[in-house]
Design a binder for these strands. Sequence first.
DNA 1: TTTATTTGTGCAATCGATTGCATATTATAA
DNA 2: TTATAATATGCAATCGATTGCACAAATAAA
Lengths: 361, 361
Amino acid sequence: MAEHNLFYGFNFDICILQKMNSKKTTIHDIAKELKITASTVSRALNNNPRISEATKKAVLGMAKDLNYQPNNLAAALRKGKSQLIGVIVPTINRSFFSSVIRGIEEVANNLNYRVIVSQSNEDIDNEIATLNALLNARVDGVLVSIGKNTNRFEHYNNLIEKGIPLVLFDRTTNEISTSQVVIDDYLGGYLATEHLIKQGCNKIVHFTNLKQVNIYKERYRGYLEALKDNGIPFNQSLVYESNMQLVDGRESAEKLLASKQEFDAIFSASDYAAVGAMQVLKENNIKIPFDVALVGFSNEPFTSFTDPPLTSVSQFPIEMGQAAAESFFEILNSKKKKFIPQKTVLQPELIIRDSSLKEGT
Amino acid sequence: MAEHNLFYGFNFDICILQKMNSKKTTIHDIAKELKITASTVSRALNNNPRISEATKKAVLGMAKDLNYQPNNLAAALRKGKSQLIGVIVPTINRSFFSSVIRGIEEVANNLNYRVIVSQSNEDIDNEIATLNALLNARVDGVLVSIGKNTNRFEHYNNLIEKGIPLVLFDRTTNEISTSQVVIDDYLGGYLATEHLIKQGCNKIVHFTNLKQVNIYKERYRGYLEALKDNGIPFNQSLVYESNMQLVDGRESAEKLLASKQEFDAIFSASDYAAVGAMQVLKENNIKIPFDVALVGFSNEPFTSFTDPPLTSVSQFPIEMGQAAAESFFEILNSKKKKFIPQKTVLQPELIIRDSSLKEGT
DNA sequence: TTTATTTGTGCAATCGATTGCATATTATAA
DNA sequence: TTATAATATGCAATCGATTGCACAAATAAA
């Protein structure tokens, strides 16, 4: 296990934390130096048109000389906006979410906003506590992907009542009347299934999760529709419900084999469950994709490292983050004007890899 | 590609952003209501011993009634500390870093601090800009994993001079005299190599990167030492240098095969390069681990999904984040006292999987 | 009963930047 | 030359919470 070994004084010197009498310089210091007032300095720094070019130049120069660093806290307090935005995700520790955050950050930083990240750990109390903490930190708004178990939404609706911008992404709900960004899970399910059919499969198993989360239902709906559109009768006994983790995929695959049903493909609504199934199939000497074609969902980074590489549906997480941030700033900038919550639906893309590619080889 | 389709008015109502006359309540509101002063309210909320229990109870009750939310900005401005800490990583979008952040967050949130995350994208200018942005946001300190190309460190040394707590983790340097948290890469390299030797290998290839980054050098050193300790002569032509991504691993493996050298194992200092090698070996019908045993480094999540699963060295990223945060708060709390920068070295662990396990099967 | 403490609150300044309004200076129009 | 407008800057209040110091009331000690 990871232990903490402490070594002292490597090639470090003992150092004394000197609070440095160099008190940070403020606009008042600049003002004093230039024999003008702080208000003029403030305006000059903000490029206010009422300030002469000469003064502006002088202020900017002196600011540089004194190594002036603006205190955003003071400005935030006065202006009532902090240039901070909060992001709540179930966990940061998943490729999908960290990529979304990356997208959000890109857009936010460009607009000179900073991002505060918090994790709900799929726990509603945690989610509420974390939201309050963000509000206390006076974030200018919040972007959220709600937890699996979140079934009350007052805390979010309160935000909206207070006029605090809120955007939901990926894990959304219609119980909250605000802008949201999702991918078209239905389409993703449809594309995946259609692809399998085109590969010649017609006994397609589906792994899904029927809990409250919308996304799986939509993928399932896409699966059904693709079958229908291609004249393939739906067979309920080919649908396996589980928690969609790797072990669940293994379990479903084992049940499937035990059932002796015929099947020539599996469309798993999760990459993890797909990998579990892949393992079981290989253990049983079932050839992928020749005996059974396999498609996952999410295009997790590991999908290209499995053997065979796993066909999957990309959700474009970075783009989702960007879109969410853009939606967010639209709300932020529409203050006091009428504002219509909008739903941004991103198009998923089927990433075809060997696990489902029968022809050619 | 992901397009943005905008649908209006799904089951959303048009909603007007009402700045809600409900101005946020402040301690003054509570004070007025209770006919006491704001200072008393402030002290009561902070559980100051000079305030009577009765008053405290009244204040707390009224605070709840009025739905009071403290304004951390105001407190931060006055107290000169924001309860915000900044984290800079090359990218958030990598399992290792997002896990470290998770660890940092856990500790920080418990102490009522929020974490602001920023990415440097391995670019030094970006790193400096992002650091300044964090300072302007008045973070109480910073935790950093420095970029690959960062070769100047004044911006960090400035922090230290100003007495702003700084902790380095994983990607560190001795050019900055502050606390740091790393794993023992040397030991990781040693363990990996030793394990291969114990499996009966004695012609062990090593994939490494010889750039400025310390971590690869240390792993290499561990490799050399393990060879030496086991009486295996070092063969320079078995060492392949590259950028350590998947394609680089492929390339190195191809060169290796083309060289016709004999080898019975590969220790790659990166999981990605290891997977690249795995692909090439399999394409050449070389059996893993029977013909060639394979070990990676980092224990990326995908290592358990490859075929065969890849033996690797775990760096315990969450624990690293926790240790970094603990180090950070030690500095923060040692203010004005003498403070000795300390180096925390975490022990890595070899996670043995099938790619290197010759016996048994 | 008087003096010394302790206890509980209030007063007012402060953190640093912003901003509505007033004012002084200069340029333009009448 | 005087009235008017434009330009540039200053004054002072403000955002909301914190905190050193003062002070009154209550309690304890003399």
